[in-house]
């Protein structure tokens, strides 16, 4: 009996002393933080993806509190609703965000861009890129080894084993920029999501001249400039044999899509116009 009483007492005393020590230590080392930071963090998606340019959601919250206005601070994952909440907490004006989404600017799947050699190194795009131009005649296009797939934290990007090109799940893509950085060929671009997520873009980054492209890829932009002539809104520019559509100017009229001789301009999420003959 004595043993039990003694052990209970000893434990009680120890726990009492410990709690007192803990109490003082926690008081002594308490960090006073702006209440808003915690509140903002609670409305942030907690993905810690780094898409905003800060290493973590906490860092972003800190930046929001310290910033004069929210102009350049965008949580790409949460988008407009989240930023509205943040603005509400801080009592600042919320900025208008154009939602963006990643697009793959290469259409050269294995049918359209024949393979001319076999890569047998480490299955990583950056290493293959360091070594040579790639398995096809096009040194600009997708290598298909999936560095972007690895970099995506939201399971939004997958290499299609049949075409060996990455495909983006628009629902999941948060436009966090990770794949854009991961791609050594700079194929992936963040573009405005557009009305009803309809988009038109040049599905190629090849800057070679026409005659070289002919042999390597069937859907490359050959820099003919027909789309530029067709565009009534001055949205298409041409540099280094490559057309580029400015998504801010583009009105989604789809005229350029029709004139492209190599079908290098892609339209996404438009209703089908007519059945192809």
């Amino acid at each position: 009996m004595n043993t039990i009483i003694f052990s209970i007492l000893t434990l009680l005393v120890i726990s009492g002393i410990s709690s007192v020590i803990l109490f003082f230590i926690s008081r002594k080392f308490q960090v006073f933080e702006d209440q808003n930071i915690q509140e903002i963090e609670s409305v942030l998606p907690a993905a810690n993806c780094g898409g905003c340019g800060y290493p973590s959601c906490h860092g972003f919250a800190l930046a929001c509190v310290n910033a004069e206005n929210l102009e350049n601070l965008v949580c790409t994952v949460g988008g407009q609703p989240t930023m509205k909440k943040v603005a509400h907490i801080l009592g600042k004006d919320s900025n208008i965000i154009h939602p963006t989404v990643a697009v793959i600017r290469c259409g050269g799947n294995c049918y359209l861009r024949p393979l001319i050699n076999q890569y047998d190194g480490v299955g990583s795009c950056v290493i293959a890129h360091n070594l040579y131009g790639g398995e096809t005649g096009c040194a600009w296009g997708c290598l298909g080894l999936g560095d972007c797939e690895v970099s995506c934290k939201f399971d939004a990007l997958h290499i299609n084993p049949e075409t060996r090109l990455p495909e983006i799940d628009e629902e999941k893509c948060t436009s966090c920029n990770a794949c854009v950085i991961a791609c050594p060929k700079l194929i992936i671009e963040l573009r405005n999501k557009g009305l009803k997520s309809r988009r038109i873009f040049v599905n190629c980054v090849n800057k070679d001249k026409d005659e070289e492209i002919q042999s390597s890829c069937n859907v490359a932009c050959i820099g003919c400039g027909k789309c530029m002539e067709e565009c009534a809104f001055d949205a298409i520019s041409m540099a280094n044999n490559l057309a580029y559509i400015d998504s801010n100017k583009c009105t989604l009229c789809r005229k350029c899509v029709a004139v492209c001789p190599t079908h290098a301009i892609l339209e996404i999420n438009f209703p089908t116009k007519r059945v192809k003959e």
């Binding site: 070594l131 040579y132 131009g133 040194a139």
Partner: peptide, 10 residues
């Protein structure tokens, strides 16, 4: 013009 060399690029 550009031409392929041993570096794997043109």
């Amino acid at each position: 013009d550009v031409h392929l060399d041993a570096s794997g690029y043109k």
